[in-house]
Amino acid sequence: MEKNKTKNRREFIQGGVRLSLSLALGGISGMAVSSAIKDDYVWQIDPFLCTQCGKCATDCIMAPSAVKCVHAFDLCGYCDLCGGYLKPDANEQSTAAENQLCPTAAIERKFIEEPYFEYHIDEDLCMGCGKCVAGCTSFGNGSMHLQIVHDICLNCNQCSIAQVCPSDAISRVKASEAYKVKGDFTNKPEV
């Protein structure tokens, strides 16, 4: 009889605690839901904040990095003398290795018509070092810029590049607007 009593009491306490725990869980989820969004998050680089420090190439958990150079053709000047393709004081304007800025030769230079050349990034070779981006931004239009490419990015809960990015250029963006490709200069924030 007494045993039953203690058992009942224990069950009662257990039930009570269980109830309060579920209330607590409900409270937490309620609070979180109030600010939750249905969309998912992905990481992306703001090209206007990026300073091409080179950490994207070294700090991504992927090797090679999920950060790749993308080329906004709308912005490109199709220059013969491309600051993103050629070394700053290149020996000559050719595709020879000694003139190319890209360490992995990931940029393809294609002649279109005098004096224009199209530049195309081979994503398989690009490792996101941003050397071409730095060149294009300082000498050209800045049509080349770094972006996190989402078919490679594993979308870590905490992006390890974002953690070390010196210019805080990497942030969570909504998955429905997963890229910050430079469309035109109107996107440029006030400096």
């Binding site: 020879a96 290795a97 000694e98 360490p103 030769a105």
Partner: peptide, 9 residues
């Protein structure tokens, strides 16, 4: 340079 670059890559 070209040979070396190729090797490095």
């Amino acid at each position: 340079i070209r040979n070396f670059d190729l090797l490095a890559r």
